[in-house]
Amino acid sequence: MANLETHHLGDTIIQLQARGVLQARPQVVVHLRVTEFGDVSISPEMISLRFHLGQLSLPRAVPAIISFVASNLDAKIRQLCEHPLLCFASQIAVELAAGSSLELLIDIGTFLAPGCSAPDTELIYEWMFYMPLQEQEMAFVQDYNIEEDGGFGGVPASKSFIESLGRSPYGQGEGFREEECVICLEDFDAGAEVSTTPCSHSFHSQCITQWLEESHICPICRYPMPTASSYPQG
């Protein structure tokens, strides 16, 4: 099942595509690309999010998921996009068979300066046509568990990955990028035991261990660490 919908809203164009897939564990996967068009360059930003529904039905889960996804958008774009996106995703969710998973591709093109002309709008359409959003472009997927109350719980990092993190004494000027642990907000004392993640950010070893037991996302740059489904368990 596939559906496609396009909205032209002033200087912003939104292209929405949905696919329904039968899976053992229902989920919603969202691939989002926002492309800003200026006088000189085109600057696309992309994120990919996966929401595990648990026992929550797809129609009940979609409104909270769309609100969460929209929170990643600039305020102006969010105001334009959230309602049509919610209507589109909600309709697809109702049409899907029980137990289905939903995949959404959201492609947004907008001009940095207001008052774009018809040729400007055509540029966005051409960009979306010749450079279609593909889920394969997403290097990492950020995972979330959606709860009965519509809240989102973090997916913990793999136990094996957490145990594999090295520990070393902190030494200022020895390749450490941070001077404080952003989790506890305490400065690193000389010789403090720290661990560095694959994205090259350093934290107190105890702090990052506790963090990763609750969420696999780096608290600084949101780099996704391996989860139990992506890392061999020891």
Rank of each mutant, 00 (worst) to 15 (best):
F176N: 14
I162K: 01
S158D: 13
G175M: 07
A157L: 10
G153T: 07
Y170L: 12
V155F: 02
G171D: 09
Q172H: 06
V155M: 08
E178F: 11
F161C: 01
S164H: 10
G173H: 10
G173E: 04
I146H: 07
Y170G: 10
R167Y: 06
I146A: 00
E174R: 14
F176W: 10
I162P: 04
I146W: 11
E174F: 09
S168L: 12
E163H: 07
G166M: 06
P156Y: 04
V155I: 15
I146S: 09
F176I: 13
G171N: 14
S160H: 01
S168N: 03
R167P: 02
R177M: 09
P169C: 08
V155T: 13
G150I: 11
E148D: 14
E163G: 00
I162T: 07
G173W: 08
S168D: 05
G154V: 08
F176R: 09
E147L: 15
S168V: 14
D149C: 04
P156W: 06
G154D: 00
K159S: 03
K159H: 05
G154F: 06
P156D: 12
E163C: 05
L165V: 03
E163I: 00
D149I: 11
Q172I: 08
F152M: 02
G171H: 14
R167Q: 15
G153M: 11
E174V: 05
G150L: 05
S164D: 11
R177G: 12
E163P: 00
G153W: 03
Q172S: 13
R177K: 09
S160I: 12
G150E: 09
F161H: 06
S158G: 06
Q172M: 12
R177T: 07
E147M: 15
G154K: 03
D149L: 09
L165E: 01
G173N: 08
G166Y: 05
G153P: 03
F161I: 05
G173V: 12
S160W: 02
E147N: 13
S168T: 13
Y170K: 09
I146V: 15
F161W: 05
P156T: 12
L165T: 08
G153E: 12
G171E: 12
E147Q: 15
G166C: 06
L165P: 00
P156H: 02
G166W: 08
Q172W: 03
I162F: 10
G166T: 07
G153N: 14
S158I: 10
G150W: 06
I146T: 02
E163T: 13
G150N: 02
A157H: 12
V155P: 13
P156N: 01
S164W: 04
S164G: 02
G173K: 02
E148S: 15
G175V: 01
Y170F: 15
L165N: 01
S158E: 07
E148R: 10
G175P: 01
E174C: 12
L165W: 06
G175H: 01
E178I: 10
A157C: 13
G154A: 09
R167L: 01
F161L: 02
F161G: 01
R177N: 07
G173T: 13
K159E: 04
R177L: 15
G175Y: 05
I162E: 04
Q172R: 14
D149G: 05
E163R: 09
I162N: 13
R167I: 08
D149E: 08
S158L: 07
F161V: 00
G166A: 10
G154L: 00
